[in-house]
Amino acid sequence: MSDLLKITDLAVDFDTTYGKLHAVRGVSIDIAEGESVGIVGESGSGKTVFSRATMGLLRGSSVHRTGQILFEGTEISSLDSKQIREYWGTKIAMIFQDPMTALNPVRRIGAQMSESLIKRLGMSKSEAKDRAIELLTLVKLPEPELALEKYAHQLSGGMRQRVMIAMAIACNPKMLFADEPTTALDVTVQAQVLELLADLRKELGMAMVIITHDLGVVAGYTDRIAVMYGGEIVELASTTDLFTDTKMPYTEALIKSIPRVDRKRGSELSSIEGMPPDPTSNRASCGFADRCPYAVQKCRDEHPQLVDAGNGHSYRCFFPIGGK
């Protein structure tokens, strides 16, 4: 499989009244065709800014982006606004956490769906309607013909997210970014949507990036997982390795802090004390040092580099769990 998306040393800074906010600090990752990658991190870890930068959605004078984002060999910042419209939808598409605000509240679902089909793919009105029904059937929305006549508020959260997915895959994108796609949904509907995304990925041969704060969500649905903390990737590994051969203390703490439905209750949940690092600081230490149970002086004095442990497994720690 060849690399579809190649990101090298991506950094994103924002100008704020408190100074420069370093949202993403030197992230490198390659994603192959058809691959499914999870990006996991807490609020403020930079995962959403990373995905928006990759989509080419971050524009404006207060955004400073460095590093490379190559999609099929083309740097996306070199695309002008007409070219980026070509890029969105056919190359890469995105679904968001809150499908209610992503959909237009005053237009019928059918009108919203056919707009892109008519404008982008040059379909006639009736062709667009047929295709919209086909897409809604593909995402297993019950009674697709009726849904076309409805407004977003008449659908449940799960149905709205299915509509969003249908719109995202309308132009057969090569890669789908899903930013917290199930966070606003009930657990039973979450399971349905995750299954649907997995099925669609196989059917359409898309690469998929799931961005989430929930390691449980990505455990069953991804090939690889990148854990982000304080704007950096702190561990990147195959999904199995990440859980069975955890190197980074932060990843370990994250896994331990998740309550599990398949485990008997213990005395106390292990929590990660303290708060994530200040995003405006220029970090000279390990970002996790203040919260890490294994931290020593070196961790507070030096910033660790990403270490390649082989087999596609890398981590950012001086003293990885289980040794180097």
């Binding site: 039973t188 399971a191 929930d214 455990a219 896994i255 599990r260 398949d262």
Partner: peptide
């Protein structure tokens, strides 16, 4: 059964 388990194994 719908609750995701953070363990791929």
């Amino acid at each position: 059964s719908s609750v995701p388990v953070p363990d791929p194994t």
